[in-house]
Simulated scan of single mutants.
Amino acid sequence: MPEWQDLTQPITERVTTHPPGWPYPEFEAYKSHESDGVNATRVRIVTHCGTHMDAPSHFFSADDHGTIEDVTPDEMVTEGVVLDLTDVDRGAAITPADLDAATEGNPIEDGDFVVLDTGMDPTETDEETYLREYAYPGVAAAEYLVDAGAAVVATDALGVDEPGASIADHEVHRALLPAGVRIVEGVANLGDVAYARHEFVCTPLPYVGRDGSQVRLLARELESVEREREESEKR
């Protein structure tokens, strides 16, 4: 079978957090094999670092909007497209015209998991550049994605809003989340991923009443899966 590709950042004590100044993850050896006969670790982590998903309650009241445990199994195992936005200048807004070009021959279908490859690999980019110089969907592009039927908008940047935007100016979050579009940020390892349709597995942890979670994000090119299935049926 075609191999799954792991698009998840490793979680370390220095995984980039956003915005700058948010705490890094902390790992404490709660039990050790040497002392207790078993290893167990206590973790302290912000829900919005590494490869993670935003729930609507990230920017809206948890009393009135969905929280991360509302993500269903059907949403976690789905299909969608990876789009080439690497020609968009760093720090610039992605436009509807950019999305038109990226979806030519690789269209967005209703309910798709849409990955925006801006060329910002979190595992290969220094932290300052990663936080300050990424391309991002402008509000018009966010509305384009909503109208196209995207169920998830994922990006290799650590944010979908303009670098350095204040909380009040996070207009893209406020365009996507109320429309029922989930946001995944910090996607990694897109360098070898085809701009095509894929199967995706994206699994947040069901933190009850919370605003987000790290995810394990996997992708497998759908054409390769279908081609191998057809070849198997011919045997």
Results as ranks from 00 to 15, higher is better:
V153Y: 00
V160C: 01
P137Q: 08
E143F: 07
D156A: 09
I167P: 06
T155Q: 03
D147F: 05
V181S: 03
G149C: 07
A148H: 12
A179Y: 11
A179N: 10
I167G: 08
G186N: 04
I183Y: 00
G164F: 11
A141S: 11
V184C: 02
V187L: 03
H170W: 14
A165K: 13
A140Q: 15
V184G: 01
L177M: 05
V139Q: 03
D192F: 08
N189V: 08
A179K: 12
V172E: 01
A151T: 08
V153R: 05
P178V: 13
H173R: 15
Y144A: 04
P137F: 10
L145I: 00
A140V: 05
A179M: 13
V153E: 00
I167S: 12
L176D: 02
V187D: 00
L190M: 10
V193P: 05
E185P: 07
V146D: 01
D169G: 07
L176A: 06
V139A: 04
A150D: 03
Y144H: 15
Y144D: 03
V184A: 02
A141Y: 11
V184T: 12
A188N: 07
E143Q: 15
L190W: 10
A179G: 03
S166D: 13
V152L: 02
E162R: 15
V160T: 03
L177P: 09
G191N: 09
A154R: 09
N189S: 15
V172P: 01
L176C: 14
V172H: 04
I167V: 13
D156S: 07
L190C: 02
R174L: 02
A168S: 11
G191V: 02
A194K: 15
A188C: 12
G159R: 13
Y144S: 03
A157K: 10
P178Y: 05
H173Y: 15
E143V: 08
G180S: 04
L190K: 13
V193I: 15
G138V: 12
E171W: 10
V193E: 03
D169V: 12
P178W: 02
G186Y: 03
P178H: 05
L190A: 04
A148I: 12
L190N: 06
D147H: 06
A157T: 08
E162Y: 10
L190R: 14
A140Y: 06
D161H: 14
G149M: 11
G159A: 15
A179I: 11
A150N: 10
G180I: 14
P178K: 13
V172L: 03
I183S: 01
R174W: 08
G186M: 05
V184K: 09
P178C: 11
V172Q: 04
A154Q: 04
H170F: 09
A154I: 00
V139K: 14
V187A: 02
A165Y: 12
H173G: 12
R174S: 01
A157V: 09
I167H: 12
A142F: 13
V153K: 04
L177Y: 00
N189E: 06
D169Q: 15
V139S: 01
R182F: 00
A154F: 00
P163M: 06
P137M: 10
S166F: 08
E162S: 13
D192W: 07
G159E: 12
V187T: 10
A179E: 04
V160W: 04
A168I: 06
S166K: 13
A175R: 15
A154S: 02
L145E: 01
